[in-house]
């Protein structure tokens, strides 16, 4: 684990954009709702590289990203951008 994200689940509105862009697919929608009634995103952090794509796209800015120093992030974006466009059909 080279990176870690912390999601403020009480502020999350469960839009799912972070899930669509995560290159490692390590974010999922929680089965438990928050106080606002949304099902927030949650991360296992198992494969997180700290690329911060989820934080860049998060409209509510609820994701904080940390990365181990001296570990370069995987080429961010490549897979995820395709991912967004791939399902267009």
């Amino acid at each position: 684990m080279a990176g870690k994200i912390i999601i403020n689940t009480e502020r999350c509105k469960g839009c799912g954009l972070c899930i669509a862009v995560c290159p490692k697919g390590s974010i999922i929608i929680s089965k438990k709702s928050n106080k606002s009634g949304y099902f927030p995103a949650e991360s296992s952090n198992a494969e997180c590289t700290g690329c911060a794509l989820c934080a860049i796209i998060c409209p509510e800015v609820v994701i904080e990203v940390f990365r181990e120093e001296d570990v370069p992030a995987d080429k961010p974006g490549k897979k995820s951008r395709k991912g967004l466009i791939k399902d267009k059909a």
Partner: peptide
């Protein structure tokens, strides 16, 4: 661990009224 992304000070720390995904 180094912080890569966090909320910037000019953006107030509060919930917005926008719809999910806006």
């Amino acid at each position: 661990m180094k912080t890569v992304f966090t909320r910037t000070p000019t953006l107030k720390d509060c919930l917005t009224h926008y719809c999910p995904g806006c």
